[in-house]
Simulated scan of single mutants.
Amino acid sequence: MPQDEDPSTPQSPPDTSPQTPSKQPDKEDQKNSLVNKIQELGQTNVAEMENSNIHCITVVGQIEGHMQLPPQNKTTKYEHIIPQLVAVEQNPKIEGLMLILNTVGGDVEAGLAISEMVASMSKPTTALVLGGGHSIGVPIAVAAKHSFIAETATMTIHPIRLNGLVIGVPQTFEYLEKMQERVINFVTHHSDIEEETFKDLMFAKGNLTRDIGTNVIGEDAMKYGLIDTVGGIGSALQKLNELIEERKDDKNGGILQ
């Protein structure tokens, strides 16, 4: 026989406290994620560019090679750039690449690696030199399908050199000469400048105060055939869109019966 509850036993009141909803990502988390992306890759997507068919990569400061530079140096790391180039090539939603350069140069092999990646891409590419595209930044600029330079931007063309411990044997200088030829061949094959003209600019005396070489400014870079067009961001984007449309027409074209 069931027993009745003892009325003297206190009953716990019903839980009337409001239920805490599941935590949604707040603005602070989004801000931290944005800051981390900028610190790691040096760039972030603008809100209106989420569905853009063009990807932009910036090459700024010093191009970092196999050795990490001091933290106060502004650098472009090739291990960040190369995966982005691979992603651009394989992502069907991205139809074109735009490079923005303002670099003093840096590691030769890292710069040539980036240049070869850009030059071997099947998708349309443009490059825009703003401020400066010096030293190994020159091959990166000419690697694109069409290159632009701002009127006030400069490009310093000079021989490569070695730093750190150098073994004073003939093989060292032969290796340096082969490295030099790699740069010269790449630039002359991907631009309209003649090899002799490029060498004359590279080994010129009296143009640079503490070095040999030449500092080429906007219009002169186009006259030498190093850069295709003098222009800015608007011209570079317009040309990139034209190249994208031409590629679409080539894909859609064919013989109809």
Rank of each mutant, 00 (worst) to 15 (best):
S191Y: 09
H134F: 09
Q30P: 00
T209Q: 14
H134S: 15
M49L: 10
I233H: 00
L112S: 07
K23S: 15
E194A: 14
M155C: 04
E50Y: 09
T103C: 08
H189R: 12
Q30Y: 07
Q238P: 02
L226G: 04
K23P: 14
L34W: 13
P10R: 14
T126Q: 02
H189I: 01
G61S: 09
D192E: 15
L237M: 12
Q19T: 13
P70F: 05
A144K: 01
Q257S: 12
L237D: 01
F203S: 03
E79S: 12
G111T: 06
Q3G: 13
A47E: 12
Q3C: 11
P10D: 11
V86R: 09
K37R: 14
D29G: 07
S147R: 05
K31I: 13
K248Y: 04
D6P: 07
T229W: 00
S17E: 11
P10K: 12
D107Q: 02
Q43S: 15
A144H: 00
A141K: 03
L243A: 00
P10F: 14
L176P: 01
K123C: 01
T188F: 01
P159F: 10
D220S: 11
P14L: 15
P139T: 09
I157V: 11
E219M: 09
R247C: 02
G133N: 06
S33G: 13
G96C: 01
E64A: 08
N207T: 07
L162E: 10
E95H: 07
D29K: 13
L34M: 10
L237G: 02
G218M: 05
R161Y: 14
Q30I: 10
Q24L: 14
D15W: 03
E116N: 13
K74C: 08
V104Y: 10
S235R: 05
E40H: 07
Y175V: 06
E89Q: 15
M155I: 15
V104W: 08
T229H: 06
T126M: 04
T229S: 08
I63Y: 08
K205W: 04
L112M: 13
K178G: 00
I167L: 15
